[in-house]
């Protein structure tokens, strides 16, 4: 009889702490999830953008347009500031002059408000390049590149919280869909995918 009571006592204590742990685990997972919802979206978006950095420019929409200047060639002395502004108004109307210089004997680069115009002063062929900030991606990439010390601190806290979120997420559910059932298989799958990539591409074992 007393042995049964001891076993019951142990079971009760374990059950009590398991309940406490699950409650704390759920609360931590829930609250960190709420707090870092925006951060996860920010890093998710910028992560996709930076994964494809060689295919597109996530920060700016860059447009180019070819132009042909008449009455060339020009020599550098002819291209005074006034003459450059006149050329700009004629061939790139609407673009606002900022500055200009001569990168080489046969080229002039004119800076405009949102870009530049490069003209071959001998042949007259030119290219207008303008860039506009890409909405949302410019902002999320700015944050992804750790622009300020305080942001680095906050994103470090976020990164640490992601680990906590991952661990606490394992123990949210009990039963057949929990970590002792379906959850275990899915977790193993999630571990194996990066491991396979390491085996194939990093350690080159296959």
């Amino acid at each position: 009889m007393s042995e049964d009571l001891t076993i019951f006592g142990h079971f009760f204590i374990i059950h009590f702490f398991a309940m406490k742990f699950r409650k704390l685990n759920r609360a931590l997972h829930r609250d960190l999830g709420y707090i870092f919802f925006a951060m996860t979206v920010i890093y998710g978006l910028s992560g996709i953008a930076l994964n494809h950095i060689n295919d597109w420019n996530p920060n700016y929409v860059i447009k180019t347009k070819e132009i042909q200047i008449q009455n060339t060639p020009f020599n550098h002395d002819q291209l005074t500031r006034e003459k450059v502004i006149t050329l700009l108004n004629e061939y790139a109307s609407g673009e606002k002059y900022k500055n200009h210089y001569f990168p080489s004997d046969d080229k002039i680069k004119i800076f405009i408000k949102d870009g530049s115009v490069i003209i071959n002063t001998q042949t007259g062929s030119g290219m207008i390049e303008t860039s506009k900030r890409r909405a949302i991606f410019h902002q999320v990439n700015y944050l992804h590149y750790n622009p300020q010390k305080w942001w680095t601190i906050f994103s470090d806290i976020y990164a640490a919280s992601l680990i906590i979120l991952a661990i606490t997420g394992l123990f949210i559910l009990k039963g057949k869909n929990g970590i002792t059932g379906r959850g275990a298989w899915l977790t193993i799958l999630g571990i194996l995918i990066p491991v396979f990539f390491l085996l194939f591409y990093y350690w080159k074992l296959f």
Binding site: Y60, N99, F111, Y145, P147
Partner: peptide, 10 residues
């Protein structure tokens, strides 16, 4: 942190 493209030409 970062430089903005609008600095070009200044």
């Amino acid at each position: 942190g970062i430089f903005e493209k609008k600095l070009e030409g200044n």
